[in-house]
C-alpha cells in the first residue's frame, strides 16, 4: 500500500471524537453497588480495563470503568458505557455484534446511527493490530453479562 494512503488512514483513525473521549473519559471511576467487576487486559501493549456493572433485572442499570491504555481502548470504553447504560441484554447483543463487525472490517456500520459516537472508531478496521484495543471494553461487558446470566 502506498504510504500516502496509509497516512490518510491514520487521520481517519484519530478523529477528534476519539481523542476527546481519551482525554475526557465519560463514566470513568468506581461504581458503588456494582454487581460485577471484570478485568480485561491486553498483555501485548499493557492496556487494562476494569468494567464495573450494576444490573436491574437483565438490564444494565449503570456501568463505569477504570484502567489505563491507548486512546482506542479508553475511548471505546468511554463511548460504550454511554451507549449501554439502561439497555437490556437483548438490546446490547446486536449492538455489540455490529460494533465488532465494524472494527473487524466485516460490515460498514459507520452510518449505523444505533452505534452513536462509536461510529468514530470505524477507522480501526484498517489497523488489525488495534482491533483488540477497540474490543477490550466490549469483551469485559460480554464477560459481565455472561456471569450475570450464569
Amino acid at each position: 500500500m502506498p504510504l500516502s494512503d496509509r497516512s490518510a488512514q491514520i487521520s481517519a483513525l484519530y478523529q477528534e471524537m476519539i481523542l476527546d473521549h481519551y482525554r475526557r473519559p465519560r463514566n470513568k471511576g468506581e461504581l458503588e453497588g456494582a454487581d460485577a467487576s471484570v478485568a480485561m487486559k491486553n498483555p501485548l501493549c499493557g492496556d487494562e480495563i476494569y468494567l464495573h456493572v450494576a444490573f436491574d433485572g437483565d438490564a444494565v442499570r449503570d456501568l463505569k470503568f477504570t484502567g489505563r491504555g491507548c486512546s482506542i481502548s479508553q475511548a471505546s470504553a468511554s463511548m460504550m458505557t454511554q451507549l449501554i447504560k439502561g439497555k437490556s441484554a437483548a438490546e446490547i447483543e446486536p449492538l455489540r455484534d455490529r460494533f465488532r463487525d465494524m472494527v473487524m472490517g466485516k460490515a460498514d456500520a459507520s452510518e449505523d446511527a444505533s452505534l452513536g459516537s462509536l461510529r468514530s472508531l470505524s477507522g480501526v478496521a484498517k489497523f488489525p493490530a488495534r482491533v483488540r484495543c477497540a474490543l477490550l471494553a466490549w469483551n469485559a461487558l460480554e464477560t459481565a453479562l455472561a456471569e450475570r446470566s450464569g
Binding site: 497516512s7 488512514q9 501493549c45 499493557g46 491507548c70 486512546s71 493490530a129
Partner: peptide, 21 residues
Amino acid sequence: VHPHDLATILDGDGICIRAGN
C-alpha cells in the same frame, strides 16, 4: 500519547518501532 498510538502513527509513515512493555 500512548506508545501504542505513537507506533500506529509512525507505522503510517513506514516507521517500525516497538510499543509496549
